[in-house]
Nucleic acid binder design. Structure first.
Length: 288
DNA sequence: TAGGCGTGGGT
DNA sequence: TACCCAAGCCT
C-alpha cells in the first residue's frame, strides 16, 4: 500500500457520501440499476428514482414481468429514456439467459443491452468485488491530473490512459474500494470546473499541482446544441406520453412543438426507437 | 468514430 | 445570460 493509496482510502473513509447502492445490503441488481441511472446523470437526481424503482422492482424478474413502457414511465425526468428501455431489455435477458441472476463477469455484463465498458467494470467491481479498471469521467479526470499532470483527459479513453490506471489499481481485494474512492474524490473535490485543491488529500502528490495547474490544451471540446434540436422536441413529446394515463391524441403532441416537419420526424424516431407506440390512427402511448 | 441522445443545476 | 457539465452507450 503506497502513500497515494493510503491517502485516498483514508479520505474516502472520512468523506464518502452515504448512497443506498453502496450499502452492504445493496444487491448486484441494485448496483446495476444505479449505474444505468447514473450514466450522464447527477447523483442527487438519481436518488429518489432509484429508491422508488427498487421498491417496485427489487429483482430483474420483477421488472421483466412488466411492459417496457412502465420502465419508461418510472424513469421520469432522468433523461435519455432509452436507458430505461435498455435496462428493461437487460432484465429480460438476465431472466432468459442467466436464470434471473445478474451475471458477475465483465464479459457477461458487457453482452447485455445498455452496458458498455464502464458499466460492465463498475457492476463487476462494485456488485461482485471483482478486479477491473473502472474508467468513468471522474476517475479519468483525477488520474489525468494526479498522474499525467493534465487538467482534463482526452476526449475518449486511450490505451496509455488505461495502462496508467492499471498501474495504480490494487492487486488485492481493495481494488473496488480504490475505484469508488477515486470516483468520489473526482465528484466532490477534483471537480471539472473549480477543483478544491485545498481540500485534496493527494495535492502534495499531484503532477498537475506540481506543474502549476496548466490549462487544458488538447483537442477542442464542443458543447452539445440543445435549443430547437430534435432532442428537445423528443423530450417534449415523451413528457406528454409519460404524464398521460393512457393513449394521447395526435393533437396533444402537436401542441408542444410548432414545427410540423421536425415534430413528425421526432415522433417517427421515438416510434422507431421503441420509446413510443401507435395504438390507433391518431393515438399514441408508451410502449406496451 | 463522430455525432445523436434528455434534463436540470451550477457558475 | 449562456454556456458547462453530470458514474456513457450505440451506430
Amino acid at each position: 500500500m503506497t502513500d497515494l493509496h493510503t491517502a485516498v482510502l483514508d479520505w474516502y473513509d472520512a468523506h464518502q457520501r452515504d448512497l443506498p447502492w453502496r450499502r452492504p445490503e445493496a444487491t448486484p441488481w441494485g448496483v446495476m440499476v444505479s449505474e444505468f441511472m447514473l450514466q450522464q446523470t447527477p447523483v442527487v437526481r438519481v436518488l429518489p428514482v432509484w429508491e422508488a424503482w427498487m421498491e417496485r422492482w427489487p429483482t430483474p424478474g420483477a421488472l421483466a414481468a412488466e411492459p417496457s413502457g412502465e420502465a419508461v414511465r418510472a424513469w421520469g425526468r432522468l433523461g435519455y429514456p432509452r436507458r430505461a428501455l435498455r435496462l428493461h431489455a437487460a432484465a429480460t435477458a438476465i431472466v432468459e439467459q442467466h436464470g434471473g441472476h445478474v451475471p458477475s463477469s465483465y464479459d457477461g455484463l458487457l453482452a447485455l443491452p445498455g452496458i458498455g465498458d464502464y458499466t460492465a467494470a463498475a457492476v463487476a467491481s462494485f456488485g461482485f468485488g471483482r478486479r477491473h479498471v473502472v474508467l468513468d469521467t471522474n476517475v479519468r479526470r483525477v488520474l489525468a491530473r494526479l498522474l499525467a499532470g493534465q487538467e482534463l483527459p482526452a476526449p475518449s479513453v486511450t490505451k496509455a490512459e488505461r495502462a496508467l490506471a492499471e498501474t495504480v489499481l490494487p492487486h488485492d481485494d481493495s481494488a473496488p474500494v480504490w475505484s469508488v474512492a477515486v470516483m468520489e474524490l473526482g465528484a466532490l473535490v477534483c471537480t471539472a470546473a473549480s477543483p478544491r485543491c485545498d481540500a485534496c488529500p493527494v495535492a502534495r502528490l499531484c503532477a498537475w499541482q506540481e506543474a502549476g495547474r496548466p490549462a487544458y490544451s488538447g483537442p477542442e471540446r464542443k458543447a452539445q446544441a440543445w435549443a430547437g434540436t430534435d432532442r428537445q422536441c423528443r423530450g417534449r413529446l415523451m413528457a406528454v406520453l409519460r404524464d398521460a394515463d393512457g393513449p394521447v391524441h395526435r393533437t396533444a403532441l402537436e401542441a408542444v412543438w410548432d414545427k410540423p416537419a421536425q415534430r413528425d420526424r421526432s415522433l417517427a424516431g421515438l416510434l422507431e426507437d421503441g420509446l413510443a407506440s401507435q395504438v390507433g390512427p391518431d393515438t399514441f402511448a408508451l410502449p406496451g
